[in-house]
Nucleic acid binder design. Structure first.
Ligand SMILES: [Mn+2]
Ligand SMILES: [Mn+2]
Ligand SMILES: [Mn+2]
Ligand SMILES: [Mn+2]
Lengths: 217, 217
DNA sequence: TTATTAATTTAGGCTAACCTAAATTTCTGA
DNA sequence: TCAGAAATTTAGGTTAGCCTAAATTAATAA
């Protein structure tokens, strides 16, 4: 059974891999808020346990074993977020932090009970897919709002859950999952957008728009 | 913020104190499944942090600070047991083990939410009192079934939750919290009892009877 | 009272997971 | 293409929490 720390390493390696970035010592160190030298140590240990392959100075890649372990944690994390949101009525800006701890101590039995109680949800409260027990993950066909062309009408499918303040902001302008909006204008100068939600028009920064993922409707 | 290990030490010291036993290095070592030498180390640390007072070779005693910390954990433990039982339908023989982990990572906010969802329960699924937020604990006026005189009619108020097999056994003979039963006969030879539950008469060992707590009705 | 036994503490060690500073390798741009 | 910068690894160290074996203190029973 991997330790809590090992689980967090594997999860973050999976995330970085998912984003297509090279998974380097420093990218991991950045994610985990740990010194690079410490990451190197752990990477060697994980490599010895066949969770990943390590080309020194180049980066790491999860093995199948590592991928499976990562997905188990991510499944627990997202189910738990769902539970906090649906059953205990926590806000979507609070749940990631709580789930960060619970993902490691939730038994498989508890995972199943929660899955049942929730009616076998497919996505978490931020629109991220909940991996299936067999290791399958449906990937979400969404592009960043910042890439939407002028005039486009779109629907929110996912919001990056890494930053609670972004989530609060997104709520505060009346956006949430599955909400529709249209892109009125793209400002060349700072790449910000003017969007229309319901009858309101709102200016939104690139930083925000890059973290809101949508599909065309 | 005390670590997980510190919290478990404080909790077990509280339990032993509660039972009226002297809290010695070896009794703690027994409860925690840790070598006595290690307990001595930790006790010195806790004493340095004023969680308890230590008379070398004699034993320990919680300070007010230690007592408060212990009760906070016990409250979380018992609320969580309640939640597992009521909301996720776990059996009363499974919940102690799960709660052992969750008690340490449940935030105060989550504690409150759960308390609300459950309707502010006063006892846990084993009949143990749930300490109030202010550090008050109602103590339960119950005596062991093994002390009940012949002919007595009693009601189950609490069952020791330390042994899952005992809990399974208690369920299997049709007993649960608040159930009534009467003592038909005390067998001198092995101190076992014949009890009547509903219309059934059942023989029950002393070991079992010592862990079932009742009040006269 | 004193000698044995039992409980406790001390001494010395280990592992996981972190750190900083120094050495090494790779990348980059003139 | 090669020197300086950036990234990575190595070296050496720390802390929490555990362990076993040895030394010390307390309890007990003849
Ligand atoms: Mn985590
Ligand atoms: Mn999420
Ligand atoms: Mn515990
Ligand atoms: Mn209990």
């Amino acid at each position: 059974m991997p330790s809590i720390n090992v689980e967090d390493y594997l999860k973050h390696i999976y995330y970085l891999q998912e984003e297509g970035d090279a998974v380097t010592t420093s990218s991991l160190a950045g994610q985990l808020n740990i010194a690079s030298a410490s990451v190197t140590d752990m990477v060697k240990k994980l490599s010895g346990q066949h969770y990943l392959r390590h080309s020194p100075y180049r980066g790491v890649q999860l093995t199948e074993k590592g991928r499976r372990s990562a997905l188990k944690i991510i499944r627990k994390h997202r189910l738990w977020e769902m539970f906090l949101s649906e059953v205990l009525h926590f806000g979507w800006d609070e749940i990631d932090e709580e789930a960060e701890k619970f993902e490691h101590i939730m038994s498989d039995k508890m995972e199943e009970r929660i899955d049942e109680v929730l009616g076998f949800p497919r996505v978490d409260p931020h629109g991220d897919p909940i991996p299936a027990k067999n290791g399958t993950v449906k990937n979400i066909r969404a592009f960043p709002l910042s890439d939407a062309p002028e005039g486009n009408s779109v629907r929110v499918l996912r919001v990056n859950d890494a930053n609670p303040e972004l989530l609060q902001y997104v709520s505060s302008i009346g956006l949430s999952l599955n909400k529709r909006l249209s892109v009125k204008q793209r400002i060349k100068f700072d790449k910000s957008l003017i969007i229309k939600i319901g009858s309101k028009e709102i200016a939104i920064s690139t930083v925000a728009a890059e973290n809101i993922f949508v599909e065309s409707v």
